[in-house]
Write a protein that binds this DNA or RNA. Sequence first.
DNA 1: CAAAAGCATTGACCAAAATCAATGCTTTTT
DNA 2: AAAAAGCATTGATTTTGGTCAATGCTTTTG
Lengths: 192, 192
Amino acid sequence: MYELFFRKFKEKVSLSPEEEETIKTYLIPKKLRKKQYLLQEGDVCKTFAFIEKGALKAYSVDNGGNEHIIQFGLEGWIISDLYSFLTGEPATYNIDAIEDAELVLISKSAHEELLQKMPKYETFIRMNITGAYLALQKRLTSTIGSSLEERYANFIALYPHIVQRVPQHMIASYMGLTPETLSRIRRRISAK
Amino acid sequence: MYELFFRKFKEKVSLSPEEEETIKTYLIPKKLRKKQYLLQEGDVCKTFAFIEKGALKAYSVDNGGNEHIIQFGLEGWIISDLYSFLTGEPATYNIDAIEDAELVLISKSAHEELLQKMPKYETFIRMNITGAYLALQKRLTSTIGSSLEERYANFIALYPHIVQRVPQHMIASYMGLTPETLSRIRRRISAK
DNA sequence: CAAAAGCATTGACCAAAATCAATGCTTTTT
DNA sequence: AAAAAGCATTGATTTTGGTCAATGCTTTTG
């Protein structure tokens, strides 16, 4: 249990067996079936989730009822509505499972206690959020500054596993496009 | 000297006078004239910069030579090419001054030493990067999911100071639009 | 102070992506 | 096994934003 979580943790920060045991007491396992919600817009995000297995997506729904995917999550990634988690405000995102999933949850109180008493946990969190920030920035740069062909090629290069496991219309949603447009981009690319 | 830096620091983490003095030994003041570069694409980003006064922008330049503004920075904000700073890779962004500016620089080695020896510094950094991440996510959500009118209204509401101090074509660049399009959006909005 | 550069706006036209609609698969559900 | 739902693709049409060009201000610069 929690194998991947601790593997990822120790890639960033060393941990003694005792420290590992301490952290374990704060972790909550959870399984999710495909299409099940982890979080619904309007509810408060009480935990963040480390993904041991499976695939999830976080998305917002606009006035017209269209989904806009903010983030995919695969094995080894963390997913949550961080703003809601930190502030206690109602979530603006939905999170659900694209495939059956196994998660490791950390509650707000666990998070705060661990931040207080374990500097190594804070380092782990800092490194994770830094990575997430850099990834977002790269995505935004590409969104603002590149052609659609480049952006899609970029996405494939960066996330080949997602391309294989996730339907194309979700990738279109992630890129802010309609499925039709993505389909035509793919045709243009393969014509070369 | 460094007034705003420590004010912002202490909004997040308490500091004894001794701790403040310790941190001060790591800080480097720097002034920048309007249009001067803090960082040029291709160079390695050796420091990050806290803005005591003035306004800067970070931007990339695409194949066609067009600027795409990634981030504005005003008093109290931090600006850098974080990826280059952390990895030592050549920067992909340029940073320059929109107005004369006064900065507080922290070098890579200072950053690493402070992270090591001062948990409070790590907390400060973690909180800053978390805030930056949340802001970026909000921006991306709005980019993907809202109409241009909404996005511009959003921007005004969120950054009224920027709207007042920065030429409109830079705001257009930040939004990924041409100046002409932004001008027309403004007309459409004011027509109501 | 005069010339030049920078900036916002407007118009005419063009290109790109969205929308609407239909088709043929494949996967789920019953 | 049949029906339904989900999905990707394609075509025709509309909408939206970009491009090119010109004008009138304002701010910088020599």
